[in-house]
Structures are given as structure tokens and as C-alpha cells.
Amino acid sequence: MRVTVFGATGKVGRLVVDQLLGDGHQVTAFVRNPAKLEQPRPRLAVQVGQLGEVATVRQAIDGTDAVISALGPTLKPFANGTALTEGTRAIVQAMKETGVRRFIGLATPSVPDERDLPTLQGRIIPLMAKTMFPRALAEVIGMSAAVAGSGLDWTLARITNPTDRPGVGTLRAGFLGHDKIGGAMTRTDIAAFLVAQLTDSTYLEAAPAISN
């Protein structure tokens, strides 16, 4: 399968690229700084550009079978703007223009899924995010809205506390109030979940919360 990866030099994105290549997929990594990505490697193409460059985004997507976005907002207190929201809108636009349907990305439980039931966890997480990381929360809300309202075949994996511990190969996935979802999840297992969605339609047009 041909897959375009956005956020390919991030902590999760690097693992997504590694797993895709290990599984035999053809990967196009969209990056701002190619020096941050290990290359050359077989079946890896690199598209250098900025998310705001719509033509470059379209070029990276054209001819692919699916898009995986490992983009996530920075938690730095002095960051500003909504570059990732605008970038996600550009990705969605480019997918529509090139006929690519499958989008797999990241979000957080701060943005509810319609299948969630009211829970203490569902109340606390958005409140903490709004208090501590308001700009990051605005970005996640904007990115999620751009995808969920796109009409594409999308899945958003909602994560809370990514860690760098070794992957354990198991996870919990589902919706708040229905399924027992924890908080922490290794980045290795997050990447594995994203890649698995290429051939799994269980969470089509849904945003499952996931954890170890």
C-alpha cells in the first residue's frame, strides 16, 4: 500500500514510518526538515514542504492510497496560532482533490466522540486541557472538526498520555462510558494502532480512545 505520513519526524511519526516500511508499504514522508528523518531507505520517498503550501501537500498525497497524520500541537506555553488546524484543512482539501479517501490521525479525549457516555474521565480531561493548554486544545478541536466534517473515510485515535516505554503489544480501545480506557500508552503501540487502521474498518468514521 502507498501511504503518505504527515508529522513524520515527530516521536510517533517516526515510529509510524518505521512500521510501515517494516510491513512492506511504500511511504511518502512529508517533512519540513529532511535531516530529521533517517534516509535513504528502500520504499521511502521524502516530500519537503510546509503544511501551508497547499500545492506541495497535494503533491505528497497524489497517487497514495491513504494518509496517516501523526501531527499534534505543541504544549509550549508561548506558542501561538493554529498552524496545524490550517494544515489539516489543507490535507483534507488535497485528499478530496486527488480522490484519496482514507485518513487516519490523532486526537485526544478532550474532543468527545458521539458514542461516548458521560464519565468523570470525560469531564476532567477537557477541563484540565482548557486550563493548562488552551491553545493546544483549540488546535485539537480545530483539527478534529476538519477531519470529522470532511466526508472522508476517517479514524481519529484519541490519546491522553503518550510514553516512551517499550511497546507491550496490547491496548484498550473504545468509547468513554462503554469501554475501560486508561490514560498512558506507549508511542510504539500508538503507531501500531494507526498503521493497523489501514486494513481495519472497525473504527471507520469514529474517534476511539486508546490506551495500554
Rank of each mutant, 00 (worst) to 15 (best):
T119N: 07
E53H: 14
G13D: 05
V67W: 00
D18R: 11
L106C: 00
Q93T: 12
L106Y: 02
L51M: 08
G24P: 06
V46E: 08
G174A: 10
S110K: 00
Q59K: 11
G182K: 07
D164F: 04
L176I: 01
Q93L: 12
F175R: 09
E86N: 13
G182M: 14
A79Q: 12
L171A: 14
T199W: 06
L194G: 02
L156F: 09
E38I: 13
E97G: 01
L84M: 13
R101Q: 13
S150G: 10
T9L: 04
A70L: 04
T155H: 05
D179S: 08
K96H: 05
E53A: 14
R165Y: 01
G22A: 09
M143Y: 12
T88W: 06
Q39L: 10
A129H: 03
A207N: 08
I104Y: 01
S150V: 11
G63E: 09
S69C: 09
A209C: 15
F133T: 11
D164S: 13
I91K: 03
L51V: 08
P126N: 06
N212W: 07
D113E: 10
Q121H: 09
T131E: 01
G22L: 05
V54K: 11
R32P: 06
Q47P: 06
V111E: 05
M132S: 00
D62K: 09
G151Y: 13
M185S: 06
T170I: 13
Q59A: 15
W154Y: 15
E205D: 11
G52A: 13
L171F: 13
P134A: 04
H178Q: 10
E114Q: 14
A157N: 07
R101Y: 03
R58H: 10
I141L: 03
A209H: 15
S144C: 03
R58K: 15
N33G: 02
D179T: 11
T85W: 05
E139Y: 05
R165H: 09
Q93G: 01
T160A: 14
Q197K: 02
S150P: 09
A94L: 05
A207F: 11
I124A: 02
A83R: 12
A8M: 03
L127I: 01
D179Q: 06
L15E: 02
A196N: 12
T119A: 07
E139K: 06
V140C: 06
S201A: 14
P166I: 00
V17T: 00
R158V: 05
I159R: 00
A107L: 02
D116R: 08
V140Y: 08
A45S: 13
Q50D: 14
I210Y: 02
R43C: 02
Q50G: 10
D179R: 09
M143C: 11
K11D: 13
G72A: 13
G7R: 04
R101T: 08
T4P: 02
L51N: 07
L120N: 04
E97H: 03
P34I: 06
G122W: 10
A146M: 07
W154Q: 11
V17N: 04
F193D: 02
R14E: 08
T202W: 00
T85R: 08
D164T: 13
G81C: 05
V16G: 04
A107S: 15
V168S: 07
K36P: 01
I181W: 08
R135H: 07
